[in-house]
């Protein structure tokens, strides 16, 4: 695998840029072994931001992508898709969190920028060891089970059944209906519960 990493530093409006000098982080990234391209941009997750990634993959013949931005728990899938749209395997991308775990928890610009740099260094080191991964598939048994036959279970079962699939309701009492059958009229309309 060739080492051609592109680093994309997100400013997240001012969420990151107010604390972290993103231009300096991008400049620093260019000095890291394997990195051939680095840029900072206002919103990496936006359409133009993703286009930036797609185009850079093609124009710079990138093999690996690092996105320094918010938490991967937020946008990992977004950037995997953007990486795949650029022609790479989606798993050749690493995200590094410089928002929730950096710009939002530190005040000092210098310290936060230094930390962002070392985080990017960490992500670059990791991504150079990423391997393309293939998604495999398994068959689906298209039959559902609803555990509990109260109003929630009945409603869910009816919706799935109307969608054309088999549903089994498992109810521990000898009748479905649940607590609802014990209720008289219900608020706010005062219609009957059964």
């Amino acid at each position: 695998m060739k080492k051609r990493v592109g680093v994309f530093v997100c400013e997240c409006g001012t969420n990151i840029a107010a604390t972290v000098d993103t231009a300096r982080v991008a400049e620093y990234a260019k000095t890291l072994p394997g990195v051939v391209y680095a840029i900072n941009y206002k919103y990496m997750c936006s359409d133009p931001g993703q286009e930036l990634i797609r185009n850079a993959i093609e124009e710079q013949q990138l093999e690996q992508v690092v996105v320094a931005s918010c938490s991967p728990r937020m946008h990992e899938i977004t950037f995997r898709k953007a990486t795949a749209a650029g022609g790479l395997n989606a798993y050749m991308m690493e995200m590094i969190n410089i928002r929730e775990q950096n710009s939002w928890v530190h005040h000092d610009h210098e310290q936060a920028t230094n930390k962002a740099q070392s985080l990017v260094r960490m992500a670059v080191a990791k991504v150079l060891r990423n391997k393309p991964l293939q998604v495999s598939t398994v068959p689906i048994t298209k039959k559902a089970m609803v555990i509990g036959g109260g109003i929630a279970g009945m409603q869910a079962a009816l919706d799935i059944a109307e969608g054309g699939h088999q549903v089994i309701i498992v109810e521990r009492e000898a009748s479905i209906g649940g607590k609802m059958t014990q209720l008289d009229k219900t608020f706010p309309t005062m219609d009957c519960a059964a």
Binding site: I147, G149, M154, A157, L158, I160, A161, E162, G164, H165, Q166, V167, I168, I169, V170, E171, R172, E173, A174, S175, I176, G177, T181, A194
Partner: peptide
């Protein structure tokens, strides 16, 4: 309640528990 019981795609297993 009756709608759920009568739906051809719904099977009721009452007095039953998942083990």
């Amino acid at each position: 309640m009756v709608a759920a019981a009568q739906h051809p795609n719904i099977e009721l297993m009452t007095y039953s528990e998942v083990t």
